[in-house]
Amino acid sequence: MELDVSFWLTQFLNGLANAMVLFLIASGLTILLGVLGVLNLAHGSFYMLGAFLIFSSSIIKNPSWFWVGLLFAPLVVAGFGTIIEAFCLRPLYGRERLYTLLLTYGFTLILDDLVLLIWGRDYKSVPIPALFEGRLTIGDFSYPVYFLFIIAVGPLLGVFLWFILNRTNFGKLIRAAATDSEMLDALGVNVNRVFTGVFALGAWLASLGGILAAPMRSVEPGMGVEIIIESFIVVIIGGMGSYLGAFVGAVLIGMLKAFGIEILENFAMIFIYALVLPILILRPRGLFGETTI
């Protein structure tokens, strides 16, 4: 029986590690949806950019490469997001939402090729940072330290987000913009700046997800396409605009993936949709959604 406990615990942690990467992407996506009403298909590309940038910083032959990358890469991606928002997305806010969808779809195509042009076609492999090498072993149970690191980062960022949204001026503006951006505008607040900030925050979070995933997954163009669909599912479950919902949704999906293969090995994905469809049909705003879009 000893063995089984460690098996289930491992499976649980696997689900959690998976969930935390999803949470980072979905939280940005959901805030963007809540505040701007923009379904950002290029969000997966920010995830990809994060992964490519950490690859570049892994070339530095110094143990600090990971921390340098972790600090700067998301800032670079956030800056890039700012440019996209300010120059391409902003002119579209007055128009039908469909156009923002198309624009961001266009950017997913462009960025997929752009990373090829910049980084070339050779396979990119990012090592595990030396600090997180190895496994934590307690009796029969043994688990990779790096996965534990990912699991720890998720809630930390969750708290950080909660702090930004609830305890800072910027957060108050974001929440106000989500409720009624026209009113905010009338009050003399520069709503455009709030929107840009939200977009940059989303890009920052998504690229962090890419950085955390890079040592375990492959760094390649198109890696955003798959993650974005899972993130959407998380957003649907949690409710658009709710980062708490994104957290719960991500954990649910992570668990379904980890434990689903115990029941229907090759059909595990179907459990995810078995969860999503009723939610969309019965409670389209998701478990925690408040904003009406």
């Binding site: 098996f7 499976q11 696997n14 590690a17 998976n18 798959e226 980890a258 293969i261």
Partner: peptide, 20 residues
Amino acid sequence: AAWPKLGENDYSAYINKMQK
């Protein structure tokens, strides 16, 4: 015998089952 889908990103659940 594990049959993950083509392009799977996360094999940890399968690895755990293999070890079991």
